[in-house]
């Protein structure tokens, strides 16, 4: 019995001593920080994709509380995260429209040949800086998969030498957009399915020579499409995603076969 008491006393005493010491330390060396930062960090998806424009989820969490960053910047988190953030910060914000990335080029190897034999680093930015890229079309997808490597969720697949986005996997972080040296990737509303799969600003004859599925600037689609939802930008037809477009005629009538439904 004495032993039990002795044991209890010793351990208890040592514990008390240590606890006291720590209590003092905690008091005198305390560092203030907002516990909500940690809380927000826990709610964010943790993909650190950088889509919000900050260095990572933790940086965004800090920015929301300390720098007053908008709370609807986290695309991967969607409505759920936004709801939580609104609860914590007391702010309200609309859910940003669900957008997905799309590579506006349909000229795969069977349509657009190579114009020289590229030998070097397998990276689009490197290829672009070496002889201007080896694709016949100087606007088309080079196919060295830089965007695919940059995608944090593996949503971009290389098919027949060009990049294709799996729209259901895309978390709209925008990492791919930043890597494409030819600026072919756009964020478009998920709901939209009709796209002009070409980005060539060249004139018709040049496009025709370079690629079998390029936009030749014939302007047929702009006449067919309702309320100017397809417009010409120079020699290129561009979908205006702010306006409704659901018209199969543009797809059927396109002589370049570059308007498709995805």
């Amino acid at each position: 019995m004495t032993m039990v008491i002795q044991t209890a006393l010793t351990i208890g005493g040592a514990g008390l001593a240590c606890g006291g010491l720590l209590a003092l330390a905690a008091k005198f060396l305390a560092v203030k920080e907002d516990p909500r930062i940690e809380e927000i960090n826990g709610i964010l998806p943790g993909a650190n994709c950088g889509g919000c424009g900050y260095a990572g989820c933790a940086a965004y969490a800090e920015a929301v509380l300390l720098k007053g960053a908008p709370i609807n910047l986290c695309a991967p988190g969607g409505a759920e995260v936004l709801g939580h953030l609104a609860d914590i910060t007391g702010e309200t914000a609309k859910v940003a429209e669900h957008k997905v990335a799309i590579v506006l080029c349909g000229g795969d190897v069977s349509y657009a040949p190579r114009k020289f034999d590229y030998n070097g680093v397998a990276d689009c930015r490197a290829a672009q800086a070496t002889g201007g890229g080896d694709k016949s079309c100087s606007y088309g997808c080079l196919g060295y998969a830089s965007c695919s490597h940059a995608c944090p969720v593996g949503a971009i697949e290389m098919v027949n030498g060009i990049a294709k986005v799996h729209r259901d996997l895309c978390i709209s972080c925008g990492s791919c957009i930043r890597t494409c040296p030819r600026h072919l990737i756009k964020m478009v509303p998920y709901a939209r399915t009709i796209h002009v799969m070409c980005s060539s600003k060249d004139k018709g004859p040049v496009v025709k020579k370079a690629c079998k599925v390029g936009c030749i600037g014939c302007t047929i689609c702009t006449k067919l499409a309702e309320n100017e939802s397809i417009k010409m930008e120079g020699f290129l037809a561009v979908v205006d995603y702010d306006k409704e477009l659901d018209n199969d005629a543009v797809i059927e009538k396109c002589p370049g076969k570059c308007i498709v439904r995805i």
């Binding site: 070097g120 680093v121 930015r125 490197a126 800086a129 070496t130």
Partner: peptide, 9 residues
């Protein structure tokens, strides 16, 4: 190795 190309990029 394409060292210069890496540097350039």
């Amino acid at each position: 190795r394409p060292l210069v190309q890496h540097m350039r990029r």
